[in-house]
Amino acid sequence: MAAAHSLSNPATTTQVIAQSRIKSKPSSSSSFLKPYSLQSPWLGIKLSVQSSKPRPRLPNHRQITATVSFSLPTAKPDRVASTEKVPKWSRRAIKSFAMSELEARKLRYPTTGTEAFPMGILVEGTSLASKFLRANGITLEKVREEAVKLLGKGDRFFFSPEHPPLTEAAQRALDWAVDQKLKSGDDGEITTTHLLLGVWSEVESPGHKILETLGFNDEKAKELISLSSEPGCVDG
C-alpha cells in the first residue's frame, strides 16, 4: 500500500527520482576529472585513462635540425683560415671515410689507419678511385686479407669504438689531400682520388705497403691523376 501510495502521489515520485540522481552523481567535479588506471596483463603496466574533457592547446615544439659535416678531421685547422673559400670533401669521400671506420671496427682494430682507407673507398664503390682500384685487380677482399697479414687479427673479445681514432699516418694522409687541393688552386671538392693518393704518400704506412703488394705504384698513381684531370671526368 505504501508503494502504491508513493506512486500515486506526484510529489513523492519527484522526491524519489531526485534522491536517486543525487546518489548516482559524483561526489565532486574534481574526482570526476581524475584519471583512473587499468592494469594491462600483456604489458604488465598500468595504463592511465584521462577524461574526455578537451585539453588546452599547447604551442608547437620547435623542430630539431641536424647539421651534416662536410669536412673530415684535420690536424691543421689554421691553414685555410686566410683563404676565401675553404675546400670541402665530396660526398663520396665522406662516405668512404665513414666506411673506413666501419671496416676498422669489423676487423676489431682500435684505430682507423691508412689500411682502412682503401677498404672504405672500395666499399663506397662509385668513385673514380674505387673503379680504378678494381680495374687494376685491387678488391676489398684482397685489401682486407693483406691488412690481416700485415697487422694481424683483432682480439675477438675487443669491441672497437664507434669512431676509432685516426692513426698519425692516417691523419697525415687526410692533411696531404687537403694540402694538394689547396696547392692546385682549382675549384671543386676534395675527392676520393685525393684520399687514395694521400695514403700512397705515406710510404711507411700499412696502407701504402698493402697497395704496393697488390700492384699499385707511382705509375698507377700518375695514371689516376691523369684520369681525374681529363675534361668531362666525374670524380668524387
Rank of each mutant, 00 (worst) to 15 (best):
A170H: 03
A11L: 07
A98K: 12
A147M: 10
F159G: 06
P118R: 00
R79T: 12
E146S: 06
A2L: 15
V123R: 10
S205Q: 11
V234G: 02
E189S: 06
R79D: 14
V80I: 05
P59F: 00
V80R: 07
D175H: 10
S69D: 02
V123D: 08
Q180P: 02
L133I: 08
E84W: 05
T139E: 11
L150A: 15
K53R: 09
R62I: 13
H208N: 13
K23H: 03
E162C: 04
S51I: 04
G236H: 07
E141F: 07
A93V: 10
Q63E: 09
S127R: 03
K153T: 11
H61K: 08
P118L: 00
S228E: 06
G125R: 09
A173K: 00
Y36H: 10
I225F: 06
P206K: 01
L140R: 08
L182T: 08
A98Q: 10
L150W: 03
Y36C: 00
P164A: 03
P73M: 04
F159A: 09
T167V: 06
T74V: 10
V16D: 06
W200L: 02
L195M: 15
T192W: 04
T114V: 01
A147G: 15
V123L: 06
N217A: 07
G44E: 14
S160A: 15
S100Y: 00
A116G: 05
E204S: 12
L128V: 09
A129W: 00
N136E: 14
P59V: 00
T13A: 12
S8T: 02
G198A: 05
E146C: 06
G236I: 01
S205G: 09
L227A: 12
W89P: 00
T213R: 12
V199M: 03
V80P: 01
K209L: 12
A104I: 05
S20H: 09
G198Y: 01
S28V: 04
T65W: 01
L166N: 04
K85V: 14
A93G: 15
Q39R: 11
M119N: 07
S69G: 09
S96M: 05
I225Q: 12
E189F: 14
I45D: 14
I138N: 09
P164E: 08
I210P: 00
G113D: 13
P35V: 04
N9V: 03
L166Q: 08
D187A: 08
A129E: 02
N136S: 07
S48M: 06
L58P: 02
I210V: 12
Q19R: 09
E101M: 14
T13L: 14
R144C: 03
V143S: 10
